[in-house]
Design a binder for these strands. Structure first.
Length: 670
DNA sequence: AACAACTGC
């Protein structure tokens, strides 16, 4: 008999058969718990198969009879789509048939769909139309421990819905740490005192189920004494691993772009010094601001004998998964957003990670074989870290949240059953702004039609107000574009290392005297007229193609909403915006009056109260131009400075004209 | 002279 080569005859299975996953042996008990208890809290480690298997178990057990469907929510779009595709493959059906997904701009479901993956934000939007989410027999909230704003709101809604629909089954998937908190939340009403004794006993509402994971062991190593500079220590550690440890790629967690660029440079310099004594090293950056192509390099196999070292922000903690990582280096820091209700200013500062984050980061080392995690801090320091970060709801601007809750019919937002109630100052600040914008009346009820319409538009309240005023200013088609462009959140431009100058000169080509909003309008206009035909347009002008196509989708969607409100959009597109510029600036003032500032002789800005020093962000046209009064889209504090972004020149008198109530007490002459 | 990461039929 001829010898045959195993490797040539067999190819590895694309996916592990479901029966081999550890979850398979829990099938019966899981189904029993879901049948018996309204709420199941699933503690599932990475690789347990919970997200892919549980929906299929439920479907097989008849939870989709009578035309009802199983919904599985994810905090991120990519997760919703990739998991859906995998489950469809396992189930042997075409995606969009029995198994489908639905995310903004991309609904791949049909009347045949029985298992539907969707973002949690989208399920909340569905509740606007179908308040009891009556199509769903089971809703599984995945990754609930991440505690995103949408997840938290959804959990509060589901608790409320369950009282009216006792048949609804809720599955909450969580990391070990927070399972008890979810259990308590669903077992007792908010005004009820949880008893001292073990909540899990004698509980017929909720039950915790633990599933073992399938990861390889990871050695955790700490520093003996604290590092003076974690960036230098990270570089040292990379070279120590490279020279002393076996094969495998390295993932380094840092806090932001600047640090990552510094690290890349340091690695290249040191590798050049070391010459060819060791194997080659290939340093790569990973952060959200990179274009799609640049992000793809991290998935490429490095040349033979070369070790890949990826320097990443928190994006690699849960959003992007890279195979082949054997070593993780954890700086112990992450940039976290916070919001001050007194100043209304968001801040973004490097803070120590939580224990939950640190263990998630370490887990990235054990996906394909046993790994090691080097923590650039002491074990003592680790012990002192918080268990988890404060949920996003407790450190954000709540104006969009309040607007959404009101639209869902929750008038008394302060008494809404939050998993973790936000501080009352955050609530008051949000209510004040919404009142000033006219979305709420003096009884804090959503106004008709303005408030209801603002809630339906998928842009922030100030921009929603601007958009809904645009028709009366005669610049609706322009504001529609500006709303789409500003909601991209600054990802319009991008540049490679050392290309800043060239990027700025291409930005000047689109510059409008009046400021950033009109410049964004020019960029969009150029993109849809010439850019879509010429494939090099975006590349040549340092524009992010993905962001630009997204702006096109957002604009189209906003337009559809306006048409539903019977607001007709004049499509005739005028390249010349000069005549309309003043109307656009006035319109921007009518929605953004709470974001006004005046330039000082030293070139910095002060807000109207005068207390806060604001700097034009270097990415703004107004960075090195003169102005008097301006309105801006965003304000953010980073490190020592507070920056404003997307800035447009206005007249002081317009503030009093469009927001007399807001400014009557304040002296704007100063 | 500089921006963590998400998201909305």
């Amino acid at each position: 008999m001829a010898e045959f080569d195993l490797d040539a005859s067999f190819i590895p299975a694309l996916h592990k058969p479901a029966a081999l996953l550890p979850i398979a042996k829990h099938r019966e008990s899981l189904l029993y718990v879901v049948e018996t208890y309204p709420i199941t809290i699933v503690i599932g480690q990475t690789g347990s198969g919970k997200t892919t298997q549980i929906p299929q178990f439920l479907e097989g057990a008849g939870w989709c009879s009578e035309g009802q469907i199983i919904g599985v929510t994810q905090p991120r779009r990519v997760a919703a789509t990739t998991v859906a595709v995998r489950v469809a493959e396992e189930a042997g059906c075409e995606i969009g048939k029995e198994v489908g997904y639905s995310i903004r701009f991309d609904d791949v479901t049909s009347s045949a769909t029985r298992i539907k993956f969707l973002t949690d934000g989208l399920l909340i939007r569905e509740a606007l139309v179908d308040p009891l989410l009556s199509r769903y027999s089971v809703i599984m909230v995945d990754e609930a421990h991440e505690r995103s704003i949408s997840t938290d709101i959804l959990l509060g809604l589901l608790k409320k819905i369950r009282k009216k629909r006792p048949k609804l089954r809720i599955i909450v998937s969580s990391a070990t740490l927070q399972a008890g908190e979810f259990l308590k939340f669903f077992t007792y009403s908010s005004d009820e005192q949880a008893p001292k004794e073990d909540v899990e006993k004698k509980n017929d509402i909720a039950k915790i189920v633990s599933l073992e994971g399938r990861t390889y062991p990871i050695d955790i190593l700490y520093l003996e004494s604290p590092a003076e500079n974690y960036l230098e220590k990270a570089i040292d550690t990379v070279f120590d691993i490279h020279t002393q440890e076996g094969e495998g790629d390295i993932l380094v967690f840092l806090t932001g772009r600047e640090e990552i660029d510094d690290a890349l440079q340091a690695i290249s310099e040191r590798a050049a010094q070391a010459g060819s004594r060791y194997g080659a090293i290939q340093p790569l950056p990973l952060y959200a601001g990179l274009s799609t192509e640049q992000q793809m390099y991290i998935f490429d196999k490095p040349p033979e004998g070369t070790r890949k070292v990826i320097f990443s922000t928190n994006i690699a903690e849960a959003s992007v998964t890279i195979d082949g990582i054997v070593y993780v280096i954890d700086s112990g820091f992450v940039k976290l957003r916070a919001y001050s209700p007194t100043t209304g200013i968001e801040s973004l500062t490097a803070s120590p990670v939580s224990k939950a984050s640190a263990s998630q980061r370490a887990g990235r080392a054990g996906r394909t074989k046993p790994g090691k995690c080097f923590r650039l801090y002491t074990e003592h320091y680790f012990e002192a870290l918080p268990e988890a970060n404060a949920p996003e709801l407790q450190r954000s601007n709540l104006a969009p949240v309040v607007l959404q809750l009101k639209a869902l019919g929750i008038d008394n937002v302060v008494r809404f059953d939050f998993l973790s109630p936000p501080p009352s100052e955050l609530m008051s600040k949000a209510l004040e702004l919404l009142y000033a914008l006219g979305a709420l009346d003096e009884y804090a009820k959503l106004t008709r039609p303005l408030g209801f319409r603002m809630a339906e538009l998928a842009v922030e309240p100030m921009m929603a107000k601007t958009l809904l005023s645009a028709q009366s200013f005669g610049c609706l088609s322009e504001i529609l574009i500006i709303a789409a462009m500003t909601s991209l959140g600054g990802s319009v431009w991008f540049y490679h290392d050392g290309e800043q100058k060239r990027m700025e000169s291409s930005r000047r080509k689109f510059a409008a005297e009046e400021g950033d909003h009109l410049t964004l309008l020019n960029v969009y206009t150029a993109f849809v007229t010439t850019g879509k035909k010429e494939s090099h347009f975006c590349h040549d002008n340092h524009l992010n193609y993905k962001s630009m196509t997204r702006a096109v989708s957002i604009r189209r969607q906003l337009k559809r909403y306006l048409e539903r409100f019977n607001i007709a959009v004049d499509e005739s597109f005028k390249g010349d915006t000069s005549k309309k510029a003043e109307q656009i600036r006035r319109c921007l003032t009518s929605g953004n009056f709470a974001h006004a500032a005046r330039m000082q002789p030293d070139g910095t800005y002060r807000n109207v109260e005068g207390g806060t020093v604001l700097h034009a962000h270097p990415s703004s046209l107004m960075f090195n131009r003169k102005a008097n009064w301006v309105v801006f889209h965003e304000v953010m504090e980073t490190g020592e400075k507070t920056f404003i972004r997307d800035i447009t020149k206005i007249e002081k008198g317009w503030l009093l004209e469009y927001a007399p109530e807001f400014y009557k007490e304040t002296d704007t002459r100063s």
